[in-house]
Simulated assay, not measured.
Amino acid sequence: MQLVTMRLILRPWRESDAESLYAYARDPRVGPIAGWPPHTSVEYSRQIIRNVLSAEETYAVTLKSENDRAVGSIGLLRGTASNLPLREKEGEIGYWIGAPYWGRGLIPEATEELIHHAFVDLGLENLWCGYFDGNEKSKRVQAKCGFTYHHTVPDVPWPLMGDIRTEHFTLMTKGQWLVQKAAHL
């Protein structure tokens, strides 16, 4: 499945995306703030595509103007697929984009499309997002897309990075989304 916005195509990851993934995911400014270590090789990136990014409802973020090159990722984990204690009709959205594309509004655009897909096509009732202390870019994306602060969990052991983190959670209900959507018509 593909999701299309004005500037983006969100499509499934392919193993042939490994070089592009490595080009952006090796940057230490990208992964650690999102909770994963920088990629160390193209082969490591290929393994991440096979084992993580090939999950259902996980999409490569590609710009229409850049020949289908993957420049980021966005995904939706539903119900028990999430690490959060979600019910069947709930989902968690996660995302990142390569540093050269920061500040262009691309991830909010991708997130808004995934929100629409989650509520309209998949029939979800609640969407969650999280961000770690210090990840102001992710916090801004969530606020811009209409998520509202819900709660904070301090002292979360984070094995992927071998540290302890504070995680903040935001929520959007389908009802809130419908009100926002109506206000922008």
Rank of each mutant, 00 (worst) to 15 (best):
M1A: 15
M1R: 12
Q2H: 13
L3C: 10
M6Y: 15
R7E: 14
I9V: 15
L10G: 01
P12R: 09
E15D: 12
E15N: 10
A23H: 14
Y24P: 00
D27Y: 02
P28G: 08
P28K: 08
R29L: 15
V30F: 01
G31K: 11
G31D: 06
P32D: 06
I33C: 11
A34I: 10
G35D: 04
G35T: 05
P38R: 03
S41H: 09
V42C: 08
Y44S: 12
Y44P: 00
Y44T: 07
S45M: 03
S45A: 15
R46I: 08
R46L: 08
Q47D: 12
N51M: 09
N51Q: 14
V52M: 06
V52P: 04
A55E: 15
E57Y: 14
E57M: 11
E57P: 01
E57D: 15
A60F: 10
T62A: 14
N67E: 15
D68N: 14
D68C: 09
R69C: 13
V71Q: 01
V71M: 05
G72T: 02
L76K: 03
L76P: 03
L77P: 02
L77Q: 12
T80Q: 07
A81Q: 15
S82W: 07
S82D: 11
N83K: 09
L84Q: 04
L84N: 01
L86C: 05
E88M: 01
E88K: 00
E88G: 02
E88W: 02
K89L: 12
E90Q: 01
E90W: 01
G91H: 04
G91P: 00
G91F: 03
W96N: 03
I97T: 03
A99T: 13
P100C: 04
G103I: 11
R104A: 10
G105I: 15
L106S: 13
L106A: 10
P108W: 15
P108D: 13
E109M: 08
T111K: 02
E112C: 14
E113F: 07
L114F: 05
I115W: 03
I115D: 03
A118N: 05
A118K: 00
F119M: 01
F119W: 01
D121P: 02
G123Q: 01
G123A: 03
L124F: 02
L124Q: 01
L124D: 00
W128R: 03
W128I: 02
C129D: 00
G130L: 10
G130A: 11
Y131W: 15
F132W: 08
F132H: 04
G134R: 05
K137Y: 06
K137C: 05
V141W: 04
V141H: 07
Q142R: 12
A143I: 13
A143F: 06
G146E: 04
T148N: 05
H150P: 00
H151F: 11
T152V: 07
T152E: 06
P154E: 12
W158N: 13
W158S: 11
P159S: 02
P159V: 01
L160R: 14
L160W: 11
M161I: 09
G162F: 08
T166W: 13
T166C: 10
E167T: 12
H168K: 08
H168R: 07
F169K: 00
F169Q: 03
T170Y: 11
M172P: 06
W177C: 06
L178N: 04
L178M: 10
V179K: 12
Q180G: 07
L185M: 12
